[in-house]
Design a protein around this nucleic acid. Sequence first.
DNA 1: TTGTATGCGTTATCAG
DNA 2: CTGATAACGCATACAA
Lengths: 329, 329
Amino acid sequence: MVSIRDVAKEAGVAISTVSKVLNNYPYVSESTKKKVTEAVERLNFVPNQVAAALSSKRSGRIALLLKLNMKTQAIDEIDMQYISGALGMAREKQLDCITVFYSVIEKMNLEEMTRYFTSQSISGIVIFGMDNDDKVLQKLIESQTFKIVVVDNPYVNENTSAIGIDHYQAQYDVAWKTISENTGNKILYIAGMRNSFVTEEKIRAMEDLSKKKKLKLFIRNGDFSELKARNIALRYAKNKDIVVCGSDLMAIGAMKALMDMDIFRPVCGFDGIILMGYVGKQMNTVKQDFANVSAEAVCELNRLLSGSTGRNVRLPHKLVRMKYEDIIC
Amino acid sequence: MVSIRDVAKEAGVAISTVSKVLNNYPYVSESTKKKVTEAVERLNFVPNQVAAALSSKRSGRIALLLKLNMKTQAIDEIDMQYISGALGMAREKQLDCITVFYSVIEKMNLEEMTRYFTSQSISGIVIFGMDNDDKVLQKLIESQTFKIVVVDNPYVNENTSAIGIDHYQAQYDVAWKTISENTGNKILYIAGMRNSFVTEEKIRAMEDLSKKKKLKLFIRNGDFSELKARNIALRYAKNKDIVVCGSDLMAIGAMKALMDMDIFRPVCGFDGIILMGYVGKQMNTVKQDFANVSAEAVCELNRLLSGSTGRNVRLPHKLVRMKYEDIIC
DNA sequence: TTGTATGCGTTATCAG
DNA sequence: CTGATAACGCATACAA
């Protein structure tokens, strides 16, 4: 393997000079800069990132913490978009990025988790899909041992930023749109997991909307499960006018139930997953650009790693209707 | 940061002794071993993998090379399963694993690609979804600079293993099953991408099956595209008896077309993606355990990294029928 | 069985 | 502007 030493010899300069050229230090004459870059070309030299990390003591290594949906693979696209967006930005920012699933760390206490990330030379973490009642992750954030960006959860401190769309507003918008496109004032809201911040936000939005528009709101907990949503719809949808769901998957479950019952009720979802195009009926939903959310999260993490302090970042969303013709290709 | 030096001091032994204990060297007395482990506990010491890699010159870092489907997110679950399976096994085998999308390397020549992976300290690569006509990747494999495991492509050399299910047999089986469950001998086969090894295997299987069972085989190229398959079905399915597809997505496209035409033809797919449960009609398909394929690929890569020579590994598959009731949860 | 010394490929701090 | 040289944290051949 060709090292910086070989380059120095080839260029007829000192090792440190090569290093300076490589890292774009000021105070290097154009002539030596040229000699070095030429030598690098000739020898096809590749800097050893491992050695660089060891020497400079900054790893630039970040981790993506993701929850793998063992059963509902229908929403794998969300995580895939997260990964894709993050990797793109990580490359742009010259960050080394690894993917970690919750399953790896789920039984660890704070110390073990810290140890784990440290041993991986991780200096920054992007947390996706964090539960509200995950005490260990909360402590990890509070410990401020790592720079952290939390997606869709409002944790902020010196070393932690929060990022995501405005779930309150988005839920408000999509529900309002669906309601105003149809008639009726009895709303069935199928909510997501209780221990989730976004669920609380969305419920709050529904309550505010109901108050403002004088709707009768009936809330049931669907836990983001298609089956639960289906059962809820089977049981309660008949004497309601409109079904609003906290996720697309639940919207699909509810819609399928309605179709089985052979009655029609407008249904709206949340997320904009591709599957929405396959269920036969068009539905309103909130389209999140997950890849962008994730890219921005990494960007924010990079900011933290450069010494900036944590903050809250809001990203845009849009309302869409998804139908088969649009998604097939 | 607490280093091995601190541990040595705390335990009252030499650095090298600590290292030996940490790496389970023989010839270390139980007493010193105990002293060291206790010191490690007390100081909450975490070995620095970066330094270890630099020192030992072996990184244990591998890369997953994946093709992200920008448009057909419906099959993101496949890549997700690949990632998940690989990460699990990588952790088990103590390998550091990064994910790389084709988009990153697609315009590189051999030298740039080698440089890229080298700079990332990558010593092994698992290649998913490789095109037959990807000359650069072919050269990369031939160069044997890295240990490589190729999924679903039969490249084998000293440092390269091939892994995957037997696509020939699987296609043969699922087609035969579908045909024997129904009547008719005019088969429309919608094939996948031309430049793909698995497509060739599957076509060969269909040809052999047709010869043996005296079927009339009509082949069209669907490029793994749902829309193309749809159009092919719209055009040719009417005067055929059975539609066999090289992928689930194409099977779904064909099935939707048949439903739109309001005629029924048995359709079978290939892969076992979750979406198959959402289209309303049950179809036969080949169920691949993608997570397992990927885990085995990493396992095989680990074998190569340990000095074994490349080989061909065949994994099992099974035939299933997918319906909504089974996948909802 | 344990300790000493050297080197891995960089970066960073000085002195020149 | 350039060049020695000392870290960085660990592994390992070799000496004891």
